[in-house]
Write a protein that binds this DNA or RNA. Structure first.
Lengths: 327, 327
DNA sequence: CAGATTTGTGGAAACGATTCCACATAAAAA
DNA sequence: TTTTTATGTGGAATCGTTTCCACAAATCTG
């Protein structure tokens, strides 16, 4: 059975135009309104969103580009995005780049052309190519989790969070070390390291390159980097890690090598993921409001979609969650 | 600048028809082919997917309906789905039901009408209403993580996994208890409990209702249920939990109440999430191949999309990962 | 009471593609 | 040479909406 607007019009005894007006809230007489309503309910008619898009140029879809979905922080952000978009009647088109930078750029282009009304990009590494791509975009974009020039974004106070956590460590430590991540990730890499260094210098401690190392975003790597650090520097009495997962790996090494946490070495991370409560001892970390980052990003995008051109950059606060690993 | 197929046709000195054929691989002369290619490259033209859909009735989009995204198992499945769909040139439209059953049904209807070519439903609770909705669907569907009557699905051997893990516990236990989840979740609730009971009876042990309880899908709940169980039954020497997270909560209680794991109580879960390596001691669990469940679901859906009507039901195997909590 | 305004309706032209035809032309087969 | 086949091409209809426009009737102004 063919079920289009003409069919509904015929069954209701009105023109196609009137049905369309009924659907979009224009002038329609009371009786015709009733009749159309009945017909639509009986037939279960739903207008073709594709025809609507073709005519109006509005897709009611938002593209979400992300490096991977099975990550605590990212899935939490997506949950936040989803909650806001759903309420506003938008759907989420997911593009998983699997950490491939070129994929990211080509999705930007593809989405921008005709697939979506707006884009949320969960950023990891932003290159000059990204900046250029943003400018070429024909739909609004919001960057989440990284700061971006001249572009709306919602990001974390990575610097502040790292500094605060480090300061907490320094209350009972004289010789802290750092395990970070690649610095082309500005937020998790560069800013958190800056925070660590700032805390050191403000407390009159000298930053030493040899107490700092770089890991990948996983436990295994945290374990290995910790092993290296402590093999060379037995004097280290505190360890700040750029992510909780790295911290968990490091803790595993510490315990296996017979060190007590927090008595011999204090440990802290950033992110305050669920895993902080799973480790023994529980892990001190800075809470980063992933969900809120997602929902705020979506809210800003919605504002752009309704015509607001003003670029907004939101830096979210953090909370230090003190737990056993630094007691 | 207006950039549609007519514009390309004009610039290339051919008809709109020929451009369309160029795009879709029909008869086009060599010179015209070259010319069109040039023009498209220069202009950066990309056909409107919405116009294409309107005409051809193919959206190249797949709807994925899920209860929540920020869960280890589900985000892993989505990653699997995504990897297969992306390769096949499909996009993923995400619908997050936030565990609302009505939302699930209404998304099924909405998607089916005109939004997507096919649907993957990550199932938790399947009611008769679902069965009816599946039959009314106008696009193919694949159910992931639950078995579904007369419908293609990919699900886990929850029964077998639970039984195998329980049997492992029984090698060194005489008095095992069980913390499960709501049984209207057939897979994680009913089947895993069945597996537990089967292992008991095959080992000549009597199943006792008072050694079994039901928790929610989180740590907190696992902690509380464990507390209740052990308050009433000091004799329990092994604990099988329907999910890793519940097991982690239970372990927390056990340790806090001064019990040693595995010496006093052995513990095991199901799912083999990343958290199994984080707990102390590490947690024995059955690995459930979430990623593969997602990718297989997507593969079956693709087969349906290319015309294959045969219903396929795949039950995935499992692996028992022995760790310290049962040693 | 004439004119302006509000309220209600339908015809027809878009939006941007695909595809059924009809029709050429050139090469191969009879 | 004539007929068939393969190869190329364009015209026009179509998919299902929205929206501009013209117009009519009813209500409100002054």
């Amino acid at each position: 059975m063919l079920l289009n607007i003409d069919e509904i019009a015929k069954l209701s005894g009105v023109s196609r135009t009137t049905v369309s007006r009924y659907l979009n809230g224009g002038y329609v007489g009371q009786e015709k309104k009733e009749k159309i309503k009945q017909v639509i309910e009986k037939t279960g008619y739903r207008p073709s969103s594709y025809a609507q898009t073709l005519r109006t140029n509005r897709t009611r879809q938002v593209g979400v580009i992300l490096p991977k979905i099975n990550s605590d922080s990212i899935s939490e952000m997506v949950e936040g995005i989803s909650s806001v978009l759903t309420k506003a009647g938008y759907f989420m088109l997911l593009a998983n780049t699997a950490n491939d930078e070129n994929a990211e750029l080509s999705y930007l282009d593809l989405f921008s052309r005709n697939k979506v009304d707006g884009i949320i990009l969960i950023g990891t590494i932003l290159t000059p190519a990204h900046k250029k791509a943003f400018e070429a975009l024909s739909v609004p974009i919001v960057v989440a989790a990284q700061q971006a020039e001249n572009t709306s974004c919602v990001y974390y106070d990575d610097y502040g969070a790292a500094k605060a956590v480090t300061e907490l460590l320094l209350q009972k430590s004289k010789c802290p070390a750092y395990i970070g991540v690649r610095e082309d990730d500005k937020a998790a890499g560069l800013e958190r390291k800056r925070g660590f260094r700032a805390a050191l210098s403000e407390n009159g401690l000298i930053y030493r390159e040899s107490y700092c190392t770089t890991a990948s975003f996983n436990m295994q790597s945290g374990y290995e980097r910790a092993e290296e650090l402590f093999n060379h520097h037995k004097e280290i009495d505190a360890l700040f890690c750029a992510t909780d997962r790295i911290a968990a790996g490091a803790m595993l090494y510490l315990k296996q090598s017979g060190r007590r946490i927090p008595e011999d070495v204090k440990v802290a991370g950033v992110g305050d993921g669920k895993l902080c409560l799973l480790t023994t001892p529980t892990l001190t970390s800075a809470h980063l409001y992933y969900y809120e980052c997602g929902s705020k990003s979506a809210e800003i995008l919605l504002r752009h979609l309704s015509g607001d051109k003003i670029v907004q950059q939101i830096r979210l606060g953090f909370t230090v969650e003190k737990r056993q690993s630094t007691e």
